[in-house]
Amino acid sequence: MNLLNEILQTILSGISVGCIYGLIALGFVMIFKATEVINFAQGELMMVGAFIAFSLISFFHLSYWTTLLLTTLIMALFGMIIERVVLRPLVGQPIFSLVMVTIGMMIFFKSVVSMIPFWGTDTYGFGTPFTEKLVRYNEIIVSWEHLSIIILTLLLILALFIFFRFTKMGVAMRATSQNQLAAVYMGISVNRVFSLTWVISAILGGFAGILLSPITFVHMNMGLIGLKAMPAAILGGFYSIPGAVVGGLIIGVTESLAGAYLPIGWKDVAAWIILILVLVIRPYGLFGTELKKKV
């Protein structure tokens, strides 16, 4: 029973970390689908979101839920500004330039965060309503911290699903990712679609930041986790929204199991081994579709 409990715990914490990988991977996929740009600053968006949440809770003494809502709004605005100020002037430039700009943003955000008083290079934490609370079911013990991550991620994904499935702008965004030219001729403003894409990605980043903070704490390098979300996105096929989430979960669980049962070091390479294996078997990712050209 003890061993079972242990494995269950390990898997559960893997799933919760996987949810965060999934959220960051979703951010990658969203921007990639709309603009074919890989946003290397996605992890840093998460870091900024975590710092904002930390400040709201520690300096302004707001409740966790108010913080969640406010951080979402601030990140939405932040995403909108990034698109308007940094990316829109580059429309029509080669994709490579845009990717370079996202790498630039990654470095820029980190530096700025390290210069802001009370943020800086230290590590911070903040309490959540779930800290140190446990759910007991017979012998099985589950921490609320992990459960909350899973539940909140599911809610966010449900909201995204409804948005893309049923709303006018959501449908417009899907259409734009398939054929920009045709979308314009349907009366869809591509500028608005791009803006909204960044807004959603920034919100995803912020959300991931808030959820991750209790586990890894808040510090300027927490965006590096983006490097682990990248294989999650690739695993899912980089075009697929469910793929990103499933990819995140697979990587999270593997990593967690490898950390618990394999020698030290395996934890960090596990994600990449899985990625390479999957790409050997399915080069277009788990959820990607093979691109065929008719001749």
Partner: peptide, 13 residues
């Protein structure tokens, strides 16, 4: 029908 569709995020959700 995009141009004929009036939008309100909350009503739609």
């Amino acid at each position: 029908r995009h141009r004929r569709r009036r939008s309100n995020l909350f009503a739609e959700a």
